[in-house]
Deep mutational scan, measured.
Amino acid sequence: MDPFVVLVLCLSCLLLLSIWRQSSGRGKLPPGPTPLPVIGNILQIDIKDVSKSLTNLSKIYGPVFTLYFGLERMVVLHGYEVVKEALIDLGEEFSGRGHFPLAERANRGFGIVFSNGKRWKEIRRFSLMTLRNFGMGKRSIEDRVQEEARCLVEELRKTKASPCDPTFILGCAPCNVICSIIFQKRFDYKDQQFLNLMEKLNENIRIVSTPWIQICNNFPTIIDYFPGTHNKLLKNLAFMESDILEKVKEHQESMDINNPRDFIDCFLIKMEKEKQNQQSEFTIENLVITAADLLGAGTETTSTTLRYALLLLLKHPEVTAKVQEEIERVIGRNRSPCMQDRGHMPYTDAVVHEVQRYIDLIPTSLPHAVTCDVKFRNYLIPKGTTILTSLTSVLHDNKEFPNPEMFDPRHFLDEGGNFKKSNYFMPFSAGKRICVGEGLARMELFLFLTFILQNFNLKSLIDPKDLDTTPVVNGFASVPPFYQLCFIPV
């Protein structure tokens, strides 16, 4: 058959498939802009700032609406009420993970971030239990974070109060905490193996944040037939998995079943207990991918939040002064901060919360999916439909947070200066898919920041009023603009 005829037939089939998918069930789905064949609503979305586009569309179609990214149908949730109703009140029905062709290629359905069903539930339950087990290797997770915080302070001392970009050092600290939990080992910041790991993690975040990856996920045929950065992403992930597998083999040879040292040991012990169960989800494949998931999810998000926190503290020296006064009063100079201190430091706690609220790190979270046909607000959402959640619409709700575009710790303080919780605080998402490392991340943010401010004054290279804190939105995360500062020993 003539190649031209084959091409026309293929394009015609794709067009018909697109029209059929977009028209099927439209009477039951939430409203939304009319999609174009094949490309859907992509032309109506700013790929570099999806969150802003969703906010604009919500003003037209309401808090629940339908979009098509290519052939992929998505239902968008915008605003606290619908997000709570879906992710919390109907948590089980909305607990699936959205379709990610690239991740599915890399992870093969294993791990904790992109798995679904029984596998996801069992691996998540085990990971939560293990991360909360403060007795691994007779050292609590808090001990590990405190140790890394001391190392971080010593690295900052080496800058000798000269101007520096904190990106690298602030990236090393949370990565080392995860390494300590998974591998029972922290690395020197100049260790070549550690630097290679950091390089792969950072490069992957840069790649994932590009519009090209959005295109690959919406048109998965590209993955096999086109060159691009997605190939580098898959190569980096394969490198990390190979490295983790080597460490798993080392653990198998040296493990003491009665004295687990780290996450890998705990997983291997669980595998041993379930070795007679042919349906067990505790396999080497799941261990390797879960460890890679924890490394990827637990490094860049925390380091970016820390980097943004220091920029905001530079911009608002009056806030920094209040935090340091609270540190001096509650902790002093002669001991290290600990998590028990947080309950006695409402202002510092409010500042950490406000940093996370203000920066809105992951504006749309990772997409969910419905696990069955769901009736939601008089609409029928078919099983498997991807759910896109606007966390921006919750964290920047102007009824809950007056002047949401302003950095103001009073958003989390009552009139008496006591810490005030808010149900709208969802930087880790909400419901059954809430970030498994939430507790660890909150511990790291509090301890790293208090250790830094206990030991250093922060000095800006320019007038604080002239510092730009506008986030650089890159399609996946909101990151701070480049800046330098000086760490002046107190």
Rank of each mutant, 00 (worst) to 15 (best):
D468V: 10
L447M: 13
I205R: 13
A297W: 13
L16G: 11
P166Q: 04
I60H: 13
F114A: 12
L294M: 13
E142T: 06
I222M: 08
F94E: 01
I289P: 06
L380M: 13
V145L: 09
H99T: 13
M240A: 06
D408K: 04
D224E: 14
K273I: 09
A297P: 05
G417C: 07
G228S: 04
G111K: 03
A161Y: 08
V6I: 13
F168S: 14
L313Y: 00
L43G: 09
P37E: 01
R108N: 10
L233Q: 04
C164V: 15
K375L: 10
E444P: 01
A369P: 01
C372R: 10
A321G: 13
I60E: 11
V351Y: 05
F482V: 15
R26N: 11
G96H: 10
P367F: 05
R119E: 06
L295A: 04
S180L: 07
K399A: 09
V177E: 01
E274Q: 09
F194R: 03
S422M: 02
K52D: 06
D349I: 07
D256I: 07
M339H: 09
E400C: 05
S390Y: 03
P174M: 15
D2G: 14
P464D: 13
D466G: 12
E285I: 07
F412W: 06
L67V: 13
E318A: 13
N258T: 12
I244M: 11
V177Y: 02
Y358R: 06
Q184V: 07
R157T: 11
L77H: 00
D466P: 05
N196R: 14
K465G: 12
E142N: 05
H344I: 05
I42K: 05
F487L: 07
G298I: 03
E444N: 07
I45C: 05
P31R: 08
Y358S: 05
N107G: 11
L234C: 09
V8F: 15
T320G: 09
Y308N: 06
G475V: 11
G91D: 12
Q279P: 13
R105H: 08
D143Y: 09
L395D: 03
K273D: 14
T469L: 13
K190E: 12
A149K: 00
V83H: 04
